[in-house]
Design a protein around this nucleic acid. Structure first.
Lengths: 343, 343
DNA sequence: ATGAAAGCGCTAACAA
DNA sequence: TTGTTAGCGCTTTCAT
């Protein structure tokens, strides 16, 4: 049986095809196709024979071939930063639900905040001919997607705007949210307020910083050197930044945390101090209510849902210039943001 | 130009194919294929001409067609319960990382704890000829996957075992973890301990209940009626269950929470009470350290990583009987589990 | 080094 | 009602 050993790798584990089913049922290929796809024009008797052949052979239609022929994959791609981040889980789930309502599957990938990996992922998804692409940008230049978009890949950017390219976009109001959060601290009597945010490469980080500065300026307050710290959001860096702002001759009496990771670390550091420090964080966190953390909440699911709806509207043929939607944020006062400065 | 209007829907937005590139570059189709795939046997000059044609046309290889021909999709499917659940985010991310290391993309779908939806999703993924499938079971009968597995779809079950079918499986030690958690409460003096868990349809829920009963029995303690409550984990149901166990003539002095959602609700309810009640929860939660919640932690990422590694080992041709791996859990004492019962 | 032809498994278009 | 033919865009095989 030498030929068995020499047989080429069984494709798909050597699964039966419509041709096999047709042979087994003693009908034509197209008849099988009709039965499999529930198309009319098959007598009940023929249909039964085909069904039997399908079951005895364990046939399942190969959607790869179908896709090739039909030209639509019924799948959309989502490139996000990190699926393990509690902010992106609900976002992804919301996209999935909309996709499902449109009969599409979701393929997602994490860029790990690496622009090259973002590009690699997005292009791999395009090569698989996803019908549409939702991208949470890691990089600042998305011209690499221009040929794809021109070729008909519907694309929507979420959470952060696209770089150097015009495209549909859905954002949260980072500027307005941060401004409101800082104004809230000011309203509670604070004058020396620190801002700790993500790397300035990230659009939301700079927008939130802009909101902070606007609120300070609105109140006629100066921002001293050392009150602003942007950078990676690993616990070590953030903890050091918090400590620095709380030490020295003119320590801040309140902190604005630029995102969920920063907030968590800030809460941990502040928990170990005797003198209370006010805190408002961007993004809501699980159990924040129990810890009394005041936050600027954005609705991750709404972000995903809105983006996916925009995507499918485009796929349904709605043309027109790219649109940007900005979703409002919401201040939730829970205690930490209402602590008064020391007298 | 009537024919333009009558042209069929442009496939893939009418993208250029290798044939187009070949015509443009004045070479044969196969030469383009060689350049695109970096195969040898092309002179630098020819290669340059092909590259130019590729760029000017905005060509990108259609992986759908490639897949059809090659028989491998370089993608794996993951069917989980809900991507928005903080437990599954890290699990999914871990699977993705392993897949990426093997050059594969991850397609994931949420079953929403609905067995029919699980099946629908899993079979849709099979129809797309994913190379492998990782399933977190929602249903209790996976015989529907038998033909697929026989046909060569590598399949691994995670977090909960497969129903009525033999398959590779990766689990956390729910029984042992719960037993250790309840023993911990007993060691701190509790005799009346309540258990609130997920629906008995879910394997981990019954396993954890079994662990609870074992620990009680080990200590020679009876389990009174009303101390055990299994069911949906929505906040209303859980809150009612907690209240019920804390009222009446013989209220429990400690609670074991069967999963992260139950723990969160339990903490909220207990926070509103004056008399302290001890609590140990299954699954770690963000900020649990700050709230002093004692938990039995399982490593979601390790679960995903282990399952994915098993999957790719199978895809690499490692045969053999299905194996079940059980990962250990870890008790993290933070205070809530060390509260003594009222004297 | 290069290309022509066959075919992956399916659907669209058109017979019969 | 049913079947036949011709591709979808690519890779494989085998010539040249």
């Amino acid at each position: 049986m030498a030929d068995i050993a020499r047989r080429p790798e069984h494709r798909y584990g050597n699964r039966p095809t419509m041709k096999d089913v047709a042979a087994r049922a003693g009908v034509g290929l197209k008849t099988v196709s009709r039965v499999v796809n529930g198309e009319p024009g098959v007598t009940p008797d023929t249909e039964r024979r085909v069904q039997e052949a399908i079951e005895s052979l364990g046939f399942r239609r190969n959607d790869s071939a179908r896709v090739l022929r039909k030209g639509r994959t019924a799948s959309v791609g989502l490139v996000l930063e990190d699926l393990a981040d509690p902010f992106y889980g609900p976002l992804s789930r919301a996209v999935e639900e909309v996709a499902r309502a449109h009969g599409a599957l979701l393929i997602n990938g994490s860029s790990a905040e690496d622009p090259e990996r973002e590009q690699e992922l997005a292009l791999a998804l395009c090569a698989r001919r996803v019908d549409g692409l939702i991208v949470i940008p890691a990089g600042g230049d998305h011209r690499y997607l221009e040929p794809e978009m021109r070729a008909g890949v519907a694309t929507v950017f979420v959470d952060r705007p696209a770089g150097r390219i015009e495209a549909d976009t859905v954002l949260s109001d980072s500027f307005g949210g941060a401004r409101a959060g800082v104004a809230h601290l000011i309203a509670h009597g604070h004058r020396r307020i620190g801002f700790i945010g993500d790397s300035p490469r990230i659009h939301t980080a700079t927008e939130r910083l802009r909101g902070y500065r606007a609120a300070m300026e609105d109140a006629g307050l100066d921002v001293a050197e050392g009150w602003v710290s942007l950078g990676p959001t690993d616990p070590e860096r953030v903890a050091a930044a918090v400590e620095a702002m709380l030490s020295g001759p003119e320590p801040v009496t309140a902190l604005f945390a630029g995102n969920n990771r920063v907030t968590v670390t800030a809460v941990r550091v502040l928990a170990g101090r005797e003198r209370p420090v006010a805190l408002v964080g961007f993004d809501d966190i699980e159990l924040a209510d129990l810890l009394g953390i005041t936050v600027i909440a954005q609705d991750a699911a709404a972000l995903g849902r809105t983006a996916a709806q925009r995507l499918f509207r485009r796929l349904d043929g709605v043309a027109g210039a790219p649109e940007t939607t900005v979703l409002a944020t919401r201040l939730i006062a829970r205690g930490s943001g209402e602590i008064a400065p020391p007298a």
